[in-house]
Design a protein around this nucleic acid. Structure first.
Lengths: 221, 221
DNA sequence: CATATTTGACACGATGAAGTATCACATATA
DNA sequence: TATATGTGATACTTCATCGTGTCAAATATG
């Protein structure tokens, strides 16, 4: 039933631009907004209490754009976790880079940055240290993977200082995991009690744990 | 409008007994069944995936009896957490009682029992170490409270061995919290990876952490 | 200006779980 | 046996959220 009167159909207008930006740019911006909103809400209210509608409202977008970037809320959580974990890890690496040769300074810088990040970003800390554990789904592997990145970071920090007579890799890995657990758990408790305890106390106590491990490993006198 | 024909209302029959047991007994049994079902399902499927209907079905009861014992599923989780935590703590105290004088044996016995309980009761372990953190509500305090019991247990274990020159209580508390965190985190990872790692490796690694802390505290050479 | 696409606001149906109520059957006592 | 209460199954209402669909206004382009 197409009328042959006018050739209106072909060679229509399109370029993908809107509001000055290209389609891919806008889409990336939306995704970023949603991710930020998700991090904020999940970290603040908890994953179970965070609906997709709420995330969209916080981001100033509508559900359509949520499903443009994520398939469901689990996916958002996974991405949020990945993003924040990466950020956390980066800040620690940045803070420790100048002290890779001095084990004491290295430990102190790493711990101060760890606790510092938590205090400066309570929402993000809650997200990666508390909310992330609860969800099964893909996050299980995700969590394990990111967690291992921390463990490997720690092992990497330690290796240069190790004497030949040190314990095997298996034991070293267990100790590193335990150390990550100690920090994580202290952060969890710290968050839960509203950051009442002074950072220095936490750092000092954790330093003792680390220096004890160092001694067991043959580092330090 | 009450008919005066018969005085059928007064002095009716009642004693509360049914199926041989008193009312309070039956009610206690139902509560126990629900609690056991809740522990099993929450530990196995996760809190978010555990509906009240499922708990009732697992317990062989109906919803009416759920609301007889609990006001909502949060309450069930709290009670389940409290119950299992108490049990966990008890088994550790029992296992360590014979070794309160020998710090090395004490640590080893405590750790073996800790990891042993987790492996023997994976559902319960998952419940108190993973699922418990997810819920805000009353569980926040609950978690903190039970968590502190573990910390105090550890501090209690340590105190007899401490020299006068040890660090202050604040530092000691931080270290104990960290130690609990190390164990908890190792258990979490162990659970998540299907208990593949041998217990002895976990115990050995954790022992190193503890003996390192002991050295820092002035215990052991 | 005309047309096509992007956007925002909102409506819609489906789902699942919470919490309550109803009904028939079982058990104890007079 | 008759009656009141305990029990089990299940229906019911309510509610929130998910995921999708619709429609008008805004924007870019010929």
């Amino acid at each position: 039933m197409s009328s042959m009167s006018t050739k209106s159909a072909p060679t229509l207008q399109r370029s993908g631009k809107y509001a000055g930006k290209a389609a891919s740019t806008r889409q990336a911006e939306r995704r970023k907004k949603l991710l930020a909103a998700g991090i904020k809400l999940i970290g603040r209210e908890g994953y179970a209490a965070t609906s997709i509608d709420a995330v969209c409202h916080e981001a100033g977008l509508t559900k359509r754009y949520f499903y443009e970037s994520f398939t469901n809320s689990d996916q958002l959580l996974v991405e949020a976790y990945r993003t924040v974990t990466q950020e956390y890890l980066s800040t620690i690496m940045r803070a420790t880079r100048p002290h890779l040769k001095d084990s004491r300074k290295l430990v102190r810088a790493g711990l101060q940055q760890s606790f510092g990040f938590v205090k400066d970003n309570p929402d993000k800390a809650r997200l990666i240290m508390i909310e992330a554990m609860s969800v099964r789904s893909q996050l299980g592997e995700m969590y394990g993977k990111s967690y291992n990145e921390f463990v490997e970071l720690l092992v990497g920090f330690t290796k240069p200082f190790l004497p030949d007579s040190g314990p095997g890799d298996a034991l070293l890995a267990v100790m590193a995991k335990g150390a990550v657990g100690a920090i994580t758990h202290l952060c969890q408790g710290w968050i839960a009690t509203g950051f009442r305890q002074p950072v220095d106390e936490l750092v000092a106590g954790t330093e003792l744990i680390f220096s004890g491990m160092g001694r067991e490993l043959g580092i330090l006198a």
